[in-house]
Design a protein around this nucleic acid. Structure first.
Length: 932
DNA sequence: CTAATCACG
DNA sequence: GACGTACGTGATTAGC
């Protein structure tokens, strides 16, 4: 039935329903796996009550929809960055229930609508106006006062809890004006819940009085001079802009572009099978029974499972059967999979490629899985001839679909907000797909789930996870492509073999996901996963794809200079030693120094060879030239082989830039790791090394912009250990090392010497690392007893530090993990071990919350950064633990600095309010050396 | 494949 | 009382 006269549209405020349900019910969890489902349960009950109510009433709707908010950033945030800024973050156990409420709505066969970047209120406003214009009636099921502006001319509201209708009179009662002037009153009165500023000192009562007197807000503002009360007059004149902004914020968008029509919202009867299947999945026994009765069908049997006890026989225990995986040969078969995926709402996804470099590797095939044991592989560009054919063939093998056709068919699903794509290390697949114009989203990643739950316990690669959690050893890739010199690329692999391998990966990923998903809550790391891991994937992918421009000429010239210098040093060294030997061999260096020359300090490692680290050679260098020259040679050799030579090989031939890969699960503390190449250890400490950064350049007309947190770990230490003196020093912007030195050595600040300050600095850093007398002594080159004296004195002056360390270690001993301020867990399995390992584990446990919290802070900044700099001519390129590097149009550098600095300095909030300010230093220049 | 060394925060 | 120690990474090279 087309919507028109005589029709009656119901609009249900989905988000309000969810929050009501959440707060009305205790935190119920699904019995089988602990998934929180309280809000879903309440939501379903409310929907059922709503349907029951309509069945008996004479005023039943002809059309109905549940409308949800989608995305946290809307046009209102663009108008006013503080919009809804004081809202608490969504509770951890509610977040995973949000998608389930969408599924619940669909299970009830009620239209479920949301539009990215818009609030439900705007969609409801648009629909209400369309319905009214078509001559129908509208009831909005909500008590939200923001919706009252829509009332009138056949539009009413109904408070579903109090069952009270709100019409024109109701609105008059609430706001003192009619619906058409509600926004004017709201603009003046403001709203603390949504953080609408309004006019200071003016509430609803006064606002209504003024509006009624002048007729409209615009009239009032234009004739503000006529207001009798001087205070009020001044407020309105002074805050005109703020009031006008407030009006824009409260005014609902009644004219949104919708991708559906009123006709799509027609009331439909639920499909009993689908509805009951969903309720059974949620394990809602009572509700299932009640609904089954109402629909006159049999209620499903919901098994009692035994949480935490023996594993319940389930699909995850299905044996792996590689020969049952499907090989996709035609578009019909592919379409059947796409249909299944759409029905399901999720799919495990994996790509096979010709290499590990996402910028260069070519797509070879795609695998999909929707149920354990149900997986397929779509071969795309396998070559004819196979792996045994020495010469290979560039012709495509038979029985494959054209890559473009397959991607065109899959693209809508891969980009569908309603279909979750599950992967293991999805950043890789996302980058491959991005090169084919597919922006995969939303995603879940089993590697990141494992990392959020089990950092510090074990690795998070697919093979390790399959072994550990599924008791299954995946087919080794080496069986297909070989290893070493005879290794081939995946496109040379026989397709039938590839099916078994590739589809198995998707199958494993799906099974891991089914296992991990509910465990996130049980481990209380849902927020960590949802805010620090999952949203970082697209951010890192963008940074990696952007890359940084590296000037090959600069590197090449430096390499030549280094080669000359090495040859020269080598001659000197051989001369001094009296014989030729390999300077690059620590064993040979040890022989020469400690046996031939008979120098002191030679220690042998477990291999029986002399050890010759830099600090030992430095000690010897005060007396002898040879160790000094060897140190010089090593420095040059390092710079050449690791940097000036190796970096040139990493310049991408297509982009002329270097594209690193970040390993999100690389460090147990939450830090990122950078590989191929590692751009997080480019030299900076020595002048000679720092010059390598001159090769990292901005494009013409642009600059590199470096923003780094100042002393972030020490600031976090001051906060978590609660050291008032340190906190005060940071708040006052003092020199923290000088202040520490002054406190410890009783030297007034104005008499501070660089040497005393240097020692205090070493102690401050030592504390972060879990200080020991031995370590400090070695670092400062002072007797161990003296170092211990420093430490004792430090603990005496800052007793909170010792308490923090003791508390952290005992927490680790009791729980087996430590935590960051943002809830990240770092497991410490060795903490209760005896022997030499105990000391390591203790210091790691002390360091992890500090290093990890700093890592969380910059991750939060990175997640927010793309939105913050959207529209600015700027790209975020690199992260170096406490630094972010951007490439920016020269004339936008000031603006970007301001925006990015705000994001970084405010990154802890609102989740954590630090007792110390976070300060970000900025620099810029044509190359990285100038910017840093 | 591992140990030694050294680059970074 | 002795033991062995700063925290977190990755790349390169030598040498088995």
């Amino acid at each position: 039935m087309a919507f028109g006269k005589g029709c009656h549209l119901h609009l249900i405020d989905g988000s309000a329903y969810i929050f009501r349900a959440y707060h009305a019910l205790p935190p119920l969890t699904r019995k089988s796996d602990g998934l929180p489902i309280g809000a879903v349960s309440g939501f379903c009950n409310m929907l059922q009550r709503y349907i029951d109510g309509n069945a008996n009433g004479s005023d039943a709707p002809t059309h109905v929809a549940v409308i949800f908010d989608k995305g946290s950033h809307t046009f209102r945030n663009d108008l006013y960055d503080q919009y809804k800024a004081n809202r608490d973050e969504m509770p951890e156990d509610l977040r995973p229930q949000i998608p389930l409420t969408r599924r619940a709505t669909e299970a009830f066969n009620i239209a479920c609508k949301e539009i990215e970047g818009f609030e439900a209120d705007d969609i409801m406003a648009t629909l209400a106006c369309q319905a009214r214009d078509a001559g129908g009636r509208v009831t909005i099921l909500s008590s939200d006062k923001d919706l009252m502006q829509l009332v009138g001319d056949g539009v009413e509201m109904l408070d579903p809890m109090k069952n009270r209708r709100i019409d024109r009179e109701g609105v008059m009662e609430k706001f003192g004006v009619g619906p058409e002037r509600v926004v004017d009153v709201q603009a003046l009165a403001g709203d603390s819940v949504d953080n609408i500023p309004g006019a200071p000192g003016i509430g609803v009562k006064t606002a209504a009085l003024l509006i009624n007197e002048f007729g409209s807000l615009e009239e009032l503002l234009d004739r503000a001079e006529e207001i009798k009360q001087p205070k009020r007059r001044q407020t309105l004149i002074e805050n005109r802009a703020q009031i006008e902004l407030s009006k824009q914020l409260v005014q609902l968008d009644r004219d949104m572009a919708l991708d559906f029509t009123l006709d799509d919202l027609e009331v439909r009867d639920p499909d009993p099978d689908k509805l009951l299947e969903f309720l059974a999945e949620m394990e809602f026994r009572t509700l299932s029974k009640r609904i089954a009765d109402a629909l006159h069908v049999e209620a499903p049997v919901i098994m009692d499972t035994d949480p935490g006890g023996t594993e319940v026989e389930g699909p995850a225990d299905l044996p792996f059967a590689p020969e049952t995986y499907e090989r996709i040969r035609d578009m019909d078969a592919l379409q059947r999979w796409i249909d299944r995926i759409n029905e399901r709402g999720y799919v495990a996804f994996d790509t096979e490629t010709t290499g590990l470099n996402e910028m260069q590797a070519d797509l070879v095939g795609i695998s999909l899985a929707v149920d354990p044991g149900q997986a397929c592989y779509v071969p795309l560009t396998h070559r004819a001839g196979g792996a045994d054919d020495l010469f290979g063939s560039d012709d495509l093998a038979e029985g494959q679909l054209p890559l473009d056709d397959v991607l065109a068919a899959l693209k809508p699903v891969l980009e569908d907000e309603a279909v979750l794509k599950i992967g293991q290390n999805m950043k890789y697949d996302a980058k491959i797909l991005a090169r084919h114009g597919v922006a995969i989203a939303p995603i879940d990643d089993t590697m990141l789930m494992s990392y959020a739950m089990n950092a510090g316990l074990h690795g998070h690669g697919m093979d390790a996870l399959a072994e550990r959690y599924l008791g299954h050893t995946p087919i080794p890739i080496k069986e297909l492509i070989g290893s070493g010199k005879s290794q081939v690329t995946f496109d040379r692999v026989d397709i039938d073999e590839a099916v078994k391998y590739a589809a198995e990966d998707a199958d494993i990923t799906l099974r891991l996901w089914q296992r991990f998903k509910p465990q996130l809550h049980q481990n209380q790391v849902t927020t960590v996963y949802e805010t620090l891991e999952r949203p970082l994937v697209p951010v890192l992918a963008q940074m990696e794809m952007a890359g940084i421009k590296v000037d090959r000429e600069v590197l090449s010239r430096m390499s030549n200079a280094f080669a000359q210098k090495m040859a020269q040093l080598e001659d000197e060294i051989h001369e001094l030693a009296g014989e030729k030997f390999n300077v690059g061999s620590p064993a040979q260096v040890g022989e020469i120094l400690f046996e031939k020359m008979g120098l002191e300090g030679g220690k042998k490692g477990k291999t029986g060879k002399y050890s010759t680290p830099a600090d030992v050679l430095e000690d010897l260098a005060t007396e002898h030239d040879l160790p000094a020259r060897i140190l010089d040679w090593r420095q040059v050799s390092k710079l050449k082989s690791t940097y000036t030579d190796a970096l040139q090989d990493h310049i991408d031939p297509d982009t002329g830039r270097v594209h690193t890969s970040y390993v999100q699960t690389g460090a147990s503390t939450g830090r990122l790791a950078s590989t191929d190449p590692n751009l997080q250890n480019i030299p900076v400490r020595t002048e000679e090394g720092r010059r390598i950064r001159e090769a990292f350049v901005a494009e013409p007309g642009k600059v590199l912009l470096s923003l780094d947190y100042s002393q972030i770990e020490l600031r976090i230490l001051a906060h978590v250990a609660g050291i008032d003196a340190l906190k005060a020093a940071f708040r006052d912007g003092q020199d923290i090392h000088a202040m520490t030195a002054s406190e410890m050595f009783d030297v007034p600040l104005d008499e501070m010497t660089p040497e005393i300050r240097r020692q205090a600095k070493a102690i401050n850093f030592g504390v972060i690392y879990g200080i020991s007398g031995f370590g400090l002594a070695r670092n400062l080159r002072i007797p161990r007893a003296e170092a211990q004296g420093f430490i004792d004195r430090y603990f005496e002056r800052f007793p909170g530090i010792r308490a923090y360390m003791d508390d952290t270690v005992s927490f680790a001993k009791e729980h087996g993990f430590v935590q960051t301020l943002f809830g990240r867990k770092i497991h410490t399995p060795e903490i209760n071990a005896k022997g030499p390992g105990a000391g390591f584990a203790k210091r790691a446990a002390i360091n992890a919350p500090i290093q990890g919290t700093a890592a969380d802070v910059i991750r939060r900044a990175m997640v927010r950064m793309p939105d913050a700099i959207a529209g600015l001519p700027a790209k975020m390129l690199l992260q170096v633990h406490d630094e972010l590097l951007f490439e920016v149009d020269e004339d936008a550098a000031d603006k970007v600095t301001e925006v990015a600095r705000d994001i970084m300095e405010g990154a802890a909030e609102p989740a954590v309010k630090l007792d110390v300010p976070l300060i970000v230093d900025a620099g810029r220049g044509g190359n990285w050396a100038e910017a840093h």
